[in-house]
Simulated scan of single mutants.
Amino acid sequence: MAVNSEWTAFLEKLKEGEQVTTFLTDPDDPKLKMEAYRFLMMSVTQGYIVRMLHDNDFPHFNAMYHWPYTAIGANPDTTYYHTSLDPNGVYRVWGKRNNMYMVNFQLAGEFYRVDGGTYAALANYDFQDLTIDEDGNFEFFLSAEKPADWDGDWFPMTPDTRYAAIRQVAYDWLTEREAEVRIERVDRKVAYPPPHTGKQLEKELEEAANASVGVALTWGEHVARFRRKDVINKLIPEGFVDEGGWAAQSYYHGAFDITSDEALVLEAEVPEKCRYWNVELTNELYVPVDYVNRHSHINGYRAYVGPDNMFRAVLAHKDPGIENWLDVGGYKVGSILGRWNECSAQPLPTLTKIPFAELDSYLPTDTPRVTPEERAKTVDALRNAYLMRVHR
């Protein structure tokens, strides 16, 4: 039987992704090694989406980062959508706003730096600034020059533009519904896509392999870099605009390293004005801890903030019975990622490691308590609401 050289080349490229195991604290640990392979499988899925499901003439917002296809510290509150664009094209975007807390539209360069292009965000727009009618409908255009016969919302594309991304951010998971967004190219010359050629598919397969390995090796090392810089059980500010981050949002990061008998207490004074904030946990390959089935993330809508305006959360392997628990999901090592969006300040929280048994003596006496039954009820409600919203 003849060997399929294109498929063999694809598999050979994917083999380079095995280097992610070198970023682990213990590359020989069987569980951690399998976590790395699971991360690679997710990366392959995402490489397929961005390099084999794209068509500049017939665009569509494909869901990129959401459970269970999570990676690169994706926000649990956010569903990320992606489509490729031709900077010389004219695109109409329309839909219904609904009641999603925040919807952000971003233009950027080449995704995953596949063809040597920039991955930096080129422009960010907020759906709150769109013209929306009384029924919640919106419509806007994207193009290099504003269409002569259009007086509504329009956003320019520069020659570097290669893709558009939409972030749909939920604050109250139980009640919010995502915006309905469609896109079409209005200057295309054909009614439907022509059949793919073999050469086109071969190129896309190669690009998918490059993207899969690229994202795995770029972001799989993220937590290892914190460890090398001794940013362990401490936090530092960090921006992501050059990596496609949200311009209105500031971030803080750090690695955690705690045993089952220890806890980390995260403390921050909540800014006087803040549109949105949250904190989440990831494993040591920067994959979010399962936020659908675990209490591994908190946002400003659900968090308890004390009368002293302090937010205190406890990272621990076991449920400490307080409202602001962050479940590390069985990972001794991982990362902490927090966001402040349109806030009057961007405080850097402190982290204090203490014995788990001493939590009660450390935390304020008025810290709200949660029973195991209450915790299970909360997680079940959030799980069902999330899955109904994202997988409707």
Rank of each mutant, 00 (worst) to 15 (best):
R188M: 10
R113L: 04
P271C: 07
L130V: 12
M42D: 08
T197W: 01
N278Q: 15
E262K: 14
H317F: 12
V50F: 00
Y276H: 15
K199P: 06
D172R: 13
L85C: 09
V215Q: 04
E202R: 14
E184C: 10
L266A: 00
K96V: 08
D151C: 01
E110N: 06
T282L: 12
Y48H: 08
M157V: 06
Y80S: 11
L201R: 14
E35G: 13
L174V: 11
E18R: 13
M34D: 15
D149F: 09
R177Y: 05
E243D: 15
L337D: 13
A170V: 02
L201T: 15
D115S: 00
F140M: 06
D242G: 12
N293G: 09
G17S: 06
A121W: 00
N4K: 15
G152N: 03
G95R: 04
L281D: 08
Y80C: 11
S5V: 09
V390D: 02
T259R: 09
F61I: 05
D28H: 03
L351S: 03
F141K: 01
H391I: 08
D129F: 06
A268C: 09
Y69N: 15
A63I: 02
E176P: 01
I298M: 11
F155H: 09
E280V: 14
D290S: 07
M1I: 13
G334H: 01
A108M: 03
D133F: 09
Y125V: 02
W246R: 06
K146V: 04
R225I: 02
N283V: 00
G17R: 01
V370R: 08
K189M: 03
P159E: 11
T8P: 01
P271L: 06
I336K: 04
L285F: 12
T365V: 04
E243T: 10
D242R: 12
P76S: 06
N4A: 10
I49G: 07
V379N: 03
D290P: 03
L40H: 00
V190A: 06
E238T: 15
V231Y: 11
L235K: 02
S344K: 01
W154I: 14
V370W: 05
I258S: 11
A357Y: 12
Y301A: 07
S5E: 08
Y304C: 02
D133E: 08
L130E: 03
I336V: 12
N124F: 09
H196G: 13
F155N: 05
G330C: 14
K199T: 15
H295G: 14
G330K: 14
R38T: 15
E110Y: 02
G220L: 06
E145F: 06
V370D: 04
E269Q: 14
P195C: 09
L107Y: 00
I49A: 10
F23P: 03
R182F: 01
Q346N: 15
F105E: 01
H60R: 03
N99H: 11
Y163F: 15
D57E: 07
M64H: 10
I72E: 08
I236V: 13
D242K: 06
I258N: 12
F61N: 02
P194C: 06
D380F: 12
V114S: 07
N278E: 15
L285M: 10
V186K: 05
E323A: 14
E145N: 11
E204H: 14
G338Y: 01
H82P: 07
L201D: 09
Y171P: 07
A74G: 12
S250W: 02
R302K: 15
F240A: 05
Y81I: 09
D153V: 07
E204F: 10
A9N: 08
D327L: 11
